[in-house]
Each structure stands twice: as structure tokens, then as C-alpha cells.
Computed example of a mutant assay.
Amino acid sequence: MSQSSPSDNKRKQAVALKYQAGTMEAPKVVAKGKGYVAENMLKTAKEHQIPVQEDPSLVEVLGKLDLNQQIPPELYQVVAEILAFVYRLDKGGAGNG
């Protein structure tokens, strides 16, 4: 997920989530960064074909969480929608597994 606002003074932000169904109660923040770090996170995600969902409001909220912190219940619905998006991409691109 990323946020960019070149017209104002905000720097690009990125937050990475991890979720393993059956082993984790809720997704957790595993990486986050701003500026150069965010750009590198997005570049690495692209290189490894990791889906990126852009939602500036969500990134702002998730960016306030600590690393390894589970997302709060009030974000379950929106993060579930993102996970469904990723799942659909994985199913559509599956074939080499």
C-alpha cells in the first residue's frame, strides 16, 4: 500500500502487512516506511510480484501502528477487502505452483 502527494509536502508512505490464515488472529504490520524507504519497499514488492493496493487513508492509519502489531478490529473489514483482492490476483496468476 502506498501514498504519494507530490503537490504538498507529504512524502510517500508504505506499509506491509502479513497474514497467514489459521495461524494468525489478524494481519500484522511487518514493515513500514516513508520517503526513500517507502520507495524501496514498493520497488521490492514489484520485483517480487507482490500485489500493492494504494489507499492513502489506510496507509496513514496503519503507519501509526507499531511493527509486529496486529491491526485493530475496526480495520478488519477494509483489510479483508484487500486480502480478497490479493487472493483473486493469486488465483488468476496461479499456474506455476
Results as ranks from 00 to 15, higher is better:
M1H: 14
M1W: 03
S2F: 11
Q3K: 10
S4F: 14
S5V: 07
S7E: 09
S7K: 15
S7F: 09
D8G: 04
D8S: 08
D8I: 10
N9E: 03
N9D: 11
N9T: 02
R11G: 02
K12P: 13
K12H: 00
Q13E: 12
V15I: 12
V15D: 07
A16V: 15
A16N: 07
L17T: 10
L17Q: 05
K18W: 08
Y19K: 05
Y19V: 11
Y19L: 13
Q20H: 07
Q20G: 02
Q20N: 08
A21V: 14
T23G: 09
M24C: 01
E25L: 13
E25P: 06
A26L: 13
P27A: 09
P27I: 04
K28S: 12
K28H: 08
V30K: 11
V30F: 06
K32P: 10
K32F: 15
K32R: 15
K32D: 11
G33N: 08
G35S: 02
Y36L: 10
Y36W: 06
V37C: 01
V37A: 05
E39C: 03
M41F: 03
L42Y: 06
A45T: 01
K46L: 01
K46V: 00
K46Y: 01
E47L: 03
H48R: 04
Q49C: 06
Q49F: 02
I50L: 02
I50R: 01
P51Q: 08
V52L: 06
V52R: 07
V52D: 01
Q53P: 00
E54R: 12
D55T: 13
D55S: 13
P56A: 04
L58M: 09
E60F: 11
L62K: 05
L62C: 15
L65Q: 12
L65S: 12
D66I: 02
D66E: 15
N68W: 09
Q69N: 00
P72K: 14
P73H: 11
P73C: 05
E74S: 01
E74R: 14
L75R: 01
Y76A: 00
Y76N: 08
Q77N: 05
V78D: 01
V79L: 13
V79E: 03
A80R: 08
E81A: 06
E81I: 13
E81T: 14
E81M: 05
E81H: 11
E81Q: 15
I82S: 06
L83F: 15
L83Y: 15
L83K: 06
L83M: 09
F85C: 00
V86H: 03
V86A: 05
V86S: 07
Y87W: 09
R88T: 07
L89K: 08
L89S: 05
G92P: 11
G92N: 05
G92A: 06
A94W: 14
A94C: 03
A94S: 15
N96Q: 13
